[in-house]
Design a protein around this nucleic acid. Structure first.
Lengths: 178, 178
DNA sequence: AATTTTCTTGACACATTGTGGCAAATTAGG
DNA sequence: CCTAATTTGCCACAATGTGTCAAGAAAATT
């Protein structure tokens, strides 16, 4: 009952939020377990940050350093735009770049229990078996195997980190102007 | 399906998608096997992205780097337009390009089991025998022999690729409301 | 501290997809 | 015509993907 009505409400809300320029961003870290079919529940706190225009749909893609990137549908459009600007089909390098982006990109969606099914290609690539870590990265989310994440942490040069930290935090005042 | 609410949902969704400019495009990679008659099943996830105006019909043509290009019918029209414009502007090279593109173009269509029959000319050209790989490239699809694809991968300059990757993936955050 | 609500996850059932084998239909050649 | 070769369609099985339910854990509320 009233499903159509709720749906309509939902999208009117989406339009309003879009119009008023409210932008949420992902943050925090959450470790969840994956079932044998590759399904993992999406962190509730991240779901609250999801723009309704994403419609609970994502694109998952191979990332750098052996992790996966999860883009809400609405954000992914920006990626595709950037991609078509950077990588045109008329140059060989452009085609190669485009191919190697898109070939590892797939649509995923939240199910009724708020889980996403990570394709087996991607779990294999990221070395994920029974557990995975979601890390909020602002406009997108990284998904890591706990083991690989530890490795990456160990490789972190803490001096370099402090430097970056200071640079970013020092300039923070102008970032929120919309 | 076939319920009133779903019908409504579908059409509201269609309108929203149109309004927000969401354009589906092919992505992902799928390896399927070919039977001895050259038939290969079209990836289900790509079928979901197909515009109804394509009517399950495609044009298959020799591509660059030894692979095949598969264009949905509706998209092929744009290709022909672009071709005739280029042919006019750059007379001799344009004519050659046009001729060598069109002469290897053939119509294919999904059969009732959602397979396409790749002409033997084309499988021979692409070096495809028992397996083939579909790669979504946005507006069209590439079809590769697994062996040739591996070769092509080896030509990928991974440093250059990471650079492009960062540019494209990072570009999402700054974009304002449309 | 007790109760309610939400979240996570295991378990199960069912739907879809990919593929091989085989039959029917169509085409081509003698 | 009749036969051979090719194309197209159909069925069935296995594997995978998807949907649902419900128990337990965690968090929030009273």
């Amino acid at each position: 009952m009233g499903e159509g009505g709720d749906f309509l409400k939902f999208h009117i809300l989406a339009i309003l939020i879009h119009a008023t320029g409210i932008v949420y961003s992902f943050k925090g870290q959450y470790e969840h377990s994956i079932d044998e079919k590759g399904r993992i529940s999406f962190p509730a706190k991240m779901r609250k940050v999801l723009s309704p225009s994403a419609q609970d749909r994502f694109v998952i893609v191979r990332g750098l350093e052996g992790c996966l990137y999860l883009y809400p549908e609405n954000e992914w459009q920006n990626v595709e735009e950037a991609l078509s600007q950077r990588a045109n089909n008329f140059s060989r390098d452009g085609r190669i770049a485009k191919r190697n982006f898109l070939r590892w990109a797939e649509d995923v969606a939240l199910d009724k229990q708020n889980r996403i099914a990570i394709p087996t290609d991607h779990t294999a690539f990221a070395g994920i078996d029974s557990k995975a870590v979601f890390i909020g990265m602002g406009q997108y989310i990284e998904i890591w195997s706990p083991a690989k994440l530890n490795e990456a942490d160990e490789n972190l040069d803490s001096d370099a980190f402090e430097q970056i930290f200071e640079q970013v935090m020092g300039g923070g005042s102008q970032t929120d102007a919309d």
